[in-house]
Design a protein around this nucleic acid. Structure first.
Lengths: 161, 161
DNA sequence: GCCAGCATACTCGGATAGATTATGTCCGAGTTAGTTTGG
DNA sequence: CCAAACTAACTCGGACATAATCTATCCGAGTATGCTGGC
C-alpha cells in the first residue's frame, strides 16, 4: 500500500510554484532539476495535476506550469487524488457474494460491516489531509524557514536545466 | 495506493474463525473454499497473520489455524499491518536533500513540513482502525445478521474442500 | 485383548512462476520569439 | 524605417519500454492418525 512517489514530487512542486515570480510559468525541466529528478517523469505528474485543474499549462517558449487556483483553494487531498486517483485504499471486492447466503445483486461495499469499518479509516484520512491547503503549508514553511521564498526564486532563476 | 487484496481475505477469515467450534483448527483450504478463493494464496495470508502473532498454526491431520489471542485483543490495524507491513503510505524520500540548502545528514521525515502534514493523515487513519477490534466486528455482525454464527459453522462443517 | 512400531495421508511453510502496476523514456503537435525580407 | 511573413527553437502531451510489486502456484518438511503385527 505504498503511495506513488509522484505525490511527494507534486506536493513539493505546488509549494515551489507559490514562490515563483507572479505570472511566471515554470517549465517541467526546471521543477525537476530543482531536486535532481528525471524531467520526463516529473512532466507526467504535472500533466496529472493539470488534468485535475490544479495547474494550468502553457506550451512553447516561455511556457511551463503555474497554479490554476489560489493556494488557499488547493487541499493536499486534491493533489493526492490528482496523482493517485479517487478510489479508496481498501478494496472491498465483495467476497461475501460467494459466502453463505451471498447474493450477486447486493452491493457489499455498503452492507459489509468490514467494508464500513475500513471506510471509517479512509474517511478519517481524507478529512485530515483535506483540512490542509497549500496555503497553510506555504505559511508554515515561511514561518519556520524564512529564507525559503527567496532561495526558491534564486534557484529557479539560476538553474540551467 | 491500492491495499492488498489479502487484507480483505484476512479480515473475513479472522472474523470467521471467531465462529469456529471452540478449540477447533480450521485449515487454509476450508477458509479459502468458504469464499471460493485460491487455497495456496489464502495460505500465504494466513502465514503472515501467524508470523504477526494473530493466528497460531498446527501442522498435520486435524491441523489448521485458530486465533492466537482473544478477539478483543486483535485490532483491524493489527491485521492490516500483518499483511501490508508497518510502513506508512506516504513516502518521504527526502527530495529536499537535493534542494537548496539541502543536507544529506538531515532526516527530512521529521523536518519536512509536507511529510509532517501527510503523517497527520496517516495517524488519523491508524487511530481509526486501531480503535476497532475483531470482537467489535463480531458483535456488530451478530446484531445485524443473527444467523451468521450458525451458518458459518455449518459451512465449515459441510464444505468439502 | 493390548501395546508398540510403522506406514500413510494430511497440513503448513517457504521457494518458485506469471500478471499487473508503477516507474522511466522518447518523439511528435503546437506555439511563441526572433529573424529576415520586401515595401 | 516599418511591418508582415517565415523560420526555428522550445514546451507540453501522450505513446512506448523497463522495473518492481502483487497475485497465484507448486512441492517439500513435519506431524498426528490409524493400521498391523507381536506379545
Amino acid at each position: 500500500m505504498r503511495m506513488n512517489e509522484g505525490v511527494e514530487w507534486a506536493l513539493h512542486s505546488c509549494l515551489n510554484l507559490t514562490w515563483a515570480e507572479p505570472g511566471e510559468a515554470v517549465t517541467a525541466a526546471r521543477l525537476a532539476a530543482f531536486y535532481g529528478l528525471p524531467t520526463a517523469y516529473m512532466n507526467k505528474q504535472l500533466q496529472a495535476l493539470t488534468r485535475a485543474g490544479i495547474l494550468s499549462s502553457i506550451s512553447g517558449p516561455r511556457g511551463g506550469f503555474r497554479l490554476a487556483r489560489r493556494p488557499e483553494d488547493i487541499t493536499l487531498l486534491d493533489v493526492v487524488t490528482a496523482i493517485e486517483g479517487a478510489e479508496e485504499a481498501f478494496r472491498c471486492e465483495g467476497i461475501l457474494k460467494e459466502g453463505p447466503n451471498g447474493s450477486a445483486d447486493v452491493d457489499y461495499r455498503t452492507t459489509c460491516l468490514i467494508s464500513q469499518a475500513m471506510r471509517k479509516g479512509d474517511l478519517a484520512w481524507r478529512r485530515e489531509i483535506a483540512a490542509q491547503t497549500i496555503a497553510d503549508l506555504k505559511a508554515a514553511v515561511e514561518r519556520a524557514y524564512p529564507h525559503t521564498p527567496s532561495s526558491t526564486r534564486d534557484r529557479f532563476a539560476n538553474l540551467r536545466p
